[in-house]
Design a protein around this nucleic acid. Structure first.
Length: 800
RNA sequence: GCCCGGGUGGCGGAACGGCAGACGCUGGGCCCUCAAAAGGCCCUGUCCGAAAGGGCGUGUGGGUUCGAAUCCCACCCCGGGCACCA
């Protein structure tokens, strides 16, 4: 036997066993055990895995192992989110086909994941770039298309001039491209959209049914941004046209003093032929999102020289065009109430427009509640009641009605890029837009010479591929050359794992019904909106087509925090990255996994410390040595349970609660460290059977975090395989002891600890506490005015 | 500006309203050794004190309570999200 803990010898041996015996593969046939679907967000394979990957799979694997050993049939698969811009940009620089660089990365990821000993069911593995996968991505697209949920139309969209592609609203951060940081332009283009807005209410309401971190739910709620208000009609007599506005404050209608339209509003240029108006509109429409959204930038706008009529009091309100009104929200036109809206107030001050208070709510501008004033027959009514009364009144007059508006926009899914899933649509001169029939899927991505984007998809240059036959009439047709956003690929991959090798269908309904929903989803909080919203939308749409039986994909979500180093986000440019491979190579996978799980609670961010790794390696070495040097004896504790047996049960209880209930990997590992420290302290004096029991328990408890060493230690003591053993059960009777340390307090401050019987009565405890020498010394003649006794804990004397 | 998190030793971090600082790192001492590495044992919030012991301590200021890191109010600082959404 080896002289010392040598992970290089231990780890490959166990990995080989698990690979040879396909230990982590699970069949779709149900058995007596409840199912548990444990899933980490699929990795984007670029370069090699980083420390964030090590963390997410270390957390997920601990959960998967824990679930297995607590009697669950666990599905724990893995795949790759393989389409995307980085591989394509790499191809533009080097000429290497994105497929080749992606496959090379995947091979590297596979190798490292195996080295880490992650318990994956590899029989279900796939990459989203494989035709056998994206065939079904296209199939789903067609189902959405049939139901009108995927459609093509012209709209003002975000355009990244560097990446030469459109972006979804969610991919624009502070007016810049999420990927490359370039200022985004607004362009009027015809693009493909998914009608996610049709699901806004359900996406919002169903958040109540899932076990997700509150902050993630809040982010989704804010992103959907449902507002209740009213749609009100303002008539322009000069043009004979009605203009609708959306307002959340119909109670302030009497305070409207002007009216504003968005520069993109189609009627603006029709309403005025003034040069000033045309110049203004032309200027702001071409401004970048950032220039326009400049927060401290002063409000700008131009009067159109027309008026509209306020339906509640017949007043004529001047109409302006101003860029603080957005075409994308509401109707692209607003009533302005400067007394009770900050933005309208700012505009009114600058353009010297009247400001009329209609709610008695404090200093103007104010948006708090209060009684109405200057509002005709509604004066004196509380604004909340007036809201209802005014809307009812408008409704009965046909001038308005209740309305709901959302911040959420439709999901723009087309991209003018190469490395993505082709959109299965052709354009026929005669039949127009024609979906590719299911039996002609997949529409395979062709090879091209040049990946560089030129404002249209590189696919457009693949003439042989573009020119095709119309599936309807057989005449000449051209293929859609845009590809899909990669978030489409990742919106359903967890369904495919349930039935990954199915060549007849995207999935078998029975398989998906058996495994879905994902019981525990694990990933970074950076996907709180994008991926997690899109996947929820897909599931709801597919459920509506009766293709599956769940409304939510991820019943429970765990978001892990970011690992920093030296307090800063790890990045290549800062030179503070840590390569998991280096650590695994030096200390072994078990140490690397424990180190990342020990930094702090995995939901929190944590600072990586190179020195900390040494400590974890020392701990695992000590555990190994304790097993190697264990005396001969029985494995079940003989005789009276001693301190070590009690400590073992204390650790079982602690790890079971910390890992099982709150994913507290750091305190779980700390508990096993304590147990091992006690094993060392008592290894000369303890009964051999107690020692062996404690070591085996430590191996069993560390297994979810350090599976190789856990298996090794457990086998050294018991000769059995730890993953085939049920999770150890705590003997509650061993957690309690006959005596305890009674805390004696004076005015809430600790002054003494005395040994007391666990079952002592209140009177006996108070009596014992009064006998404390230290109390006597501290009382110093002062009187005890009150005594608080907490049985099993303390006695507090209130002294004056 | 609004909405979430979070401020505890030299560091990462523990702590059902009840012993603040578990566990790890760092630092120090000792043992083993010819010596080193590895390993083992002990100490390590701060101030006063030779010690015994005591004072002070969980961002700041108030409050509730016999008792507050923990609950409430106000403020300061850090991180994240949203941001002209009517």
């Amino acid at each position: 036997m080896a002289e010392r803990y040598d992970p290089k010898q231990i780890e490959p041996r166990w990995q080989k066993t698990w690979a040879d015996e396909r230990t982590w593969e699970v069949s779709n046939d149900p058995d007596d055990h409840p199912k548990s679907y444990v899933l980490e967000m699929l990795p984007y394979p670029s370069g090699e895995p980083h420390i964030g990957h090590l963390k997410v799979y270390s957390v997920g694997d601990a959960i998967a192992h824990y679930k297995r050993r607590t009697g669950h049939r666990v599905l724990h698969p893995l795949g790759y989110d393989a389409f995307g811009l980085p591989a394509e940009n790499h191809a533009i620089r080097t000429g290497q086909h994105p497929r080749d660089s992606t496959n090379a990365s995947i091979a590297e990821f596979q190798r490292q994941f195996r080295d880490w000993g992650i318990s994956i069911d590899w029989s279900r593995e796939f990459g989203t770039h494989e035709p056998s996968y994206y065939r079904w991505t296209q199939w789903i697209f067609l189902r959405l298309f049939e139901r009108g949920l995927a459609h093509r139309h012209e709209a003002a969209v975000n355009w990244c001039p560097k990446d030469q592609t459109v972006l979804a609203n969610e991919q624009v951060i502070d007016g810049r491209c999420e990927r490359c940081g370039t200022l985004v332009e607004v362009k009027q283009l015809e693009q493909w959209f998914f009608r996610i807005t049709e699901y806004a209410d359900r996406l919002l309401d169903d958040l109540d049914d899932i076990d997700w971190p509150p902050h993630v739910k809040t982010m989704q709620r804010n992103w959907i941004g449902r507002s209740h208000g009213a749609q009100v009609t303002f008539r322009c007599e000069e043009l004979g046209t009605d203009y609708e506005v959306f307002t959340t404050r119909p109670d302030t209608l009497f305070g409207a003093t002007f009216f504003v339209m968005a520069p993109e509003h189609p009627d603006v240029l029709r309403m005025s032929d003034s040069q000033e108006v045309h110049d203004y509109v032309n200027r702001v429409v071409h401004e970048s999102a950032e220039e326009r959204g400049a927060e401290d930038g002063e409000k700008t706008g131009v009067a159109l020289g027309l008026t509209v009529t306020n339906p509640v009091n017949g007043e004529e309100l001047p109409v302006y065009v101003a860029d603080y009104v957005l075409m994308e929200y509401g109707t692209g036109a607003i009533m302005a109430v400067p007394a009770h809206d900050e933005r309208d107030h700012e505009f009114a001050v600058k353009f010297d427009l009247p400001i009329r208070r209609v709610v008695d709510c404090g200093e103007l501008p104010c948006s708090d509640d209060g009684p109405l004033v200057n509002s005709g027959r509604f004066d004196g009514m509380n604004n909340r009641e007036a809201f209802e009364a005014i809307v009812d009144w408008l409704d009965s007059d046909g001038k308005g009605k209740r309305a709901v508006n959302y911040r959420l926009r439709d999901w723009l899914l087309s991209r003018q890029r190469y490395w993505g899933c082709p959109i299965p649509i052709v354009y026929c001169e005669r039949d127009g837009m024609v979906p590719v029939p299911d039996d002609q899927l997949p529409v395979e991505l062709p090879d091209v010479e040049d990946y560089a984007p030129k404002g249209k998809s590189p696919l457009a240059t693949a003439e042989d591929w573009v020119n095709t036959e119309c599936p309807k009439c057989g005449g000449p047709a051209r293929r859609e050359t845009d590809t899909m956003d990669t978030f489409v690929d990742s919106s359903w991959y967890f369904l495919r794992y349930c039935d990954a090798r199915n060549e007849e269908a995207a999935w078998d309904r029975g398989a998906v019904d058996a495994w879905m929903p994902v019981d525990q989803y694990i990933g970074g909080v950076e996907h709180a909106i994008l991926h997690l919203m899109y996947a929820r939308f897909f599931i709801k749409a597919l459920a509506d087509m009766d293709l599956l039986g769940v409304q939510e994909p991820f019943a429970s979500l765990f978001t892990q925090g970011m690992v920093t180093r030296g307090g800063a986000k790890m990045s290549k440019s800062k030179g503070n990255t840590v390569s998991p491979e280096e650590i695994v190579d030096r200390y072994g996978a078990d140490t690397a996994r424990c180190a990342i799980l020990y930094v702090g609670h995995p939901a929190e961010g944590g600072d990586w410390s190179d020195e900390g790794v040494d400590g974890l390696f020392r701990f695992l070495s000590r555990l190994w040595r304790a097993a190697a040097e264990a005396p001969e004896g029985a494995n079940e504790p003989d005789g009276e349970p001693g301190a070590l047996v009690r400590k073992s049960h204390w650790a079982i209880d602690k790890v079971t609660r910390d890992l099982g209930q709150r994913f507290a990997t750091h305190t779980s590992i700390a508990a096993v460290i304590e147990l091992v420290n006690d094993i060392y302290r008592e290894r000369e004096s303890a009964d051999p059977s107690h020692l062996r029991f404690a070591v085996a328990t430590a191996g069993s408890l560390i297994f979810p975090f350090a599976p190789h060493l856990g298996s090794e230690v457990y086998e050294m003591i018991t000769g059995r395989r730890v993953w085939e053993e049920p999770w150890p059960e705590v003997d509650q009777s061993l957690l309690a002891s006959d005596t305890f340390q009674l805390i004696v307090q004076m005015n809430g401050k600790l002054i003494d600890r005395i040994e007391a019987a666990a079952d002592a009565s209140r009177e006996e405890l108070e009596e014992a506490a009064r006998g404390s020498d230290r109390l006597a010394a501290r009382l110093n003649g002062k009187a005890i005015v009150k005594t608080v006794v907490v049985p099993g804990k303390l006695v507090n004397f209130v002294v004056r």
